[in-house]
C-alpha cells in the first residue's frame, strides 16, 4: 500500500472492507452450500464459506488455523465429498419437489435457535480473563501438543485410524453383497 493511497484509504477502512468481504464470503458460501438443489453448487458453496472462515480466523489472529482450515476442509473434505458425489451419481437422479411445510419447519426451527442463542449471547456478561498471555506462535501450539494435549494428540490419531479402516470397510465392502438388478 502506497502512502498516497494511505491518505485516502485508511487502514481501518481496508480492514473493514476486508472483514465485510470475508463475512460476505462466509455467508454467501454458506447459503450456496445449503440452498441450491444441485449438489455440486453446494460443494462450491462450502469451499467458499471455508475460505471466508479462514479469513475470519486471520482476523481472529491465527494464520496457522486459517491455513489448516483451507488445507483440511478444501483439501480433504470437499474433495472427498466430490468423490462421493461422483461415485453415487446423484446428478441424474430426479429429485422430487420439496415438501413445503418441511421447508418452513426447518426455517422455523433454525429461527428459534437463532433467536434463543442471540439472546443468550447478548445476555451473558462475557468476562475477560484477568491475566492474558499473548503468545500466538505455532511453537506454543506445538508445545501444548506435546504436553497438555499429548493424550488428545494420540487419541485423534487413533480416531483417524479407526475412521479410515472403517471407511475402507464400509465403502469398499458393504452393500457389495447384494447388487440391484442390471448392475455389472
Amino acid at each position: 500500500m502506497t502512502p498516497v493511497m494511505g491518505q485516502y484509504i485508511r487502514p481501518e477502512a481496508v480492514a473493514w472492507a476486508a472483514f465485510i468481504l470475508v463475512v460476505g464470503l462466509t455467508f454467501a458460501g454458506a447459503l450456496i452450500a445449503v440452498l441450491p438443489r444441485n449438489i455440486i453448487y453446494n460443494v462450491f458453496g462450502l469451499a467458499t464459506c471455508i475460505l471466508g472462515v479462514a479469513g475470519l480466523f486471520i482476523f481472529l489472529g491465527s494464520e496457522f488455523l486459517a491455513m489448516m482450515e483451507i488445507l483440511i476442509y478444501i483439501g480433504a473434505i470437499s474433495i472427498a465429498i466430490v468423490f462421493a458425489i461422483m461415485l453415487s451419481q446423484p446428478m441424474h437422479v430426479r429429485i422430487p419437489p420439496a415438501w413445503r411445510p418441511k421447508l418452513y419447519l426447518s426455517f422455523a426451527v433454525s429461527a428459534v435457535v437463532f433467536v434463543s442463542f442471540s439472546v443468550i449471547v447478548l445476555r451473558t456478561p462475557w468476562a475477560v480473563a484477568l491475566e492474558r498471555s499473548q503468545d500466538w506462535t505455532v511453537k506454543r501450539l506445538g508445545e501444548l501438543f506435546l504436553t497438555r494435549y499429548e493424550l488428545l494428540f494420540e487419541l485423534i490419531s487413533l480416531a483417524l485410524l479407526v475412521a479410515i479402516i472403517g471407511a475402507i470397510i464400509t465403502a469398499a465392502a458393504l452393500g457389495g453383497g447384494r447388487k440391484p438388478e442390471g448392475e455389472p
Binding site: 426451527v109 428459534v112 435457535v113 433467536v115 434463543s116 439472546v119
Partner: peptide, 13 residues
C-alpha cells in the same frame, strides 16, 4: 432434537 434443545434454551430466558 434441535427444537427441544432450543425450547429448553428459551425456557431459561
Amino acid at each position: 432434537m434441535v427444537l427441544v434443545m432450543a425450547l429448553v434454551g428459551l425456557y431459561f430466558l
